[in-house]
């Protein structure tokens, strides 16, 4: 418990900044919505000039564009990207910072097992991810009260936003599993950006053309907003895939970290 509290404390500042950034991003884009809604035809014309891949990347569906649920995916695609960066960075650093900041000699000689250390840190990180998302969603609801958006299906809106958590879980676990293979990981940001943008490009370049199997390798395609809007539910196979990726990465992290040599400086 002491480690969990310690981690929460050390994460609070950066988490607050991330939550604030997500809210600010959403506020910026949503503030454009009333203008767009007023002049939908002109906006549609503008957007239809974009290549289809870009439109897919931004989650734009031309027919739905005039409604909030049609417009929001454009905003949300950026939110998800930020969320992926945030959680991957967290995953990469939460264990490795003890090595890179050389505090391992303090923590790892305490009378606790290494798996207890991993557990505390993982729980602290997941708590922070959830907190960020809750703050974000609450602020979002607040924003929608202020901005005139008309009526919309709140349940579908919630469902879209929930996928942020799943994407974050995937990238957090991925980061964690990558980090344990480094002796001393200092390049957290370059790896984060490389992996997240790499997956994003995968999604952008190949889209849905490569078939269902390919989608499993492209986390950004796990939760298709169009599908959610059409069916009112998430796609179960990909929800399952999320769980599998998360658990496998976690198991790898435990196995490697508990056996790892912590070398002197």
């Amino acid at each position: 418990m002491n480690m969990y509290v310690h981690e929460l404390r050390s994460l609070r500042k950066s988490s607050f900044i991330w939550a604030f950034a997500l809210v600010a991003l959403a506020a910026l884009y949503l503030s454009l919505y009333p203008g767009v809604a007023k002049d939908v035809t002109a906006f549609k014309e503008l957007i239809s000039g974009y290549p289809p891949t870009v439109r897919a990347l931004l989650g734009i569906n031309l027919e739905r564009l005039s409604t909030l649920l049609g417009f929001y995916p454009m905003v949300f695609s950026f939110i998800v990207l930020c969320g992926a960066v945030q959680s991957m960075q967290l995953g990469l650093s939460i264990l490795s910072k003890e090595m890179s900041e050389r505090t391992a000699d303090f923590l790892l000689v305490k009378p606790v097992s290494r798996s207890a250390i991993v557990t505390s840190k993982v729980f602290a990180a997941l708590t922070m991810i959830l907190l960020i998302d809750i703050v974000f969603f609450a602020a979002l609801i607040g924003l929608l009260q202020v901005i005139d958006v008309g009526a919309f299906d709140r349940q579908l809106f919630f469902l879209i936003n929930v996928t942020l958590v799943f994407i974050q879980l995937i990238f957090f676990a991925l980061g964690l599993a990558i980090s344990v293979f480094f002796r001393k990981l200092k390049a957290v940001l370059p790896i984060t950006l490389g992996v997240v943008i790499g997956f994003y490009m995968l999604f952008a370049l190949f889209g849905k053309d490569r078939g269902e199997l390919f989608r499993f390798f492209s986390p950004f395609q796990y939760f298709d907003v169009g599908y959610i809007l059409d069916h009112g539910t998430l796609e179960w196979p990909y929800l399952l895939a999320t769980a599998v990726v998360f658990l496998v990465c976690l198991v790898i992290s435990y196995l490697v970290f508990t056996r790892k040599d912590i070398d002197a400086i």
């Binding site: 009378p111 002197a264 400086i265």
Partner: peptide, 20 residues
């Protein structure tokens, strides 16, 4: 038996702690 480290006090040659 990590609990045995309860009885151990360790001073490393170079000390690094959580800076802030």
């Amino acid at each position: 038996h990590p609990e045995v480290r309860k009885e151990v006090g360790y001073l490393p040659s170079e000390v690094f702690y959580y800076d802030n």
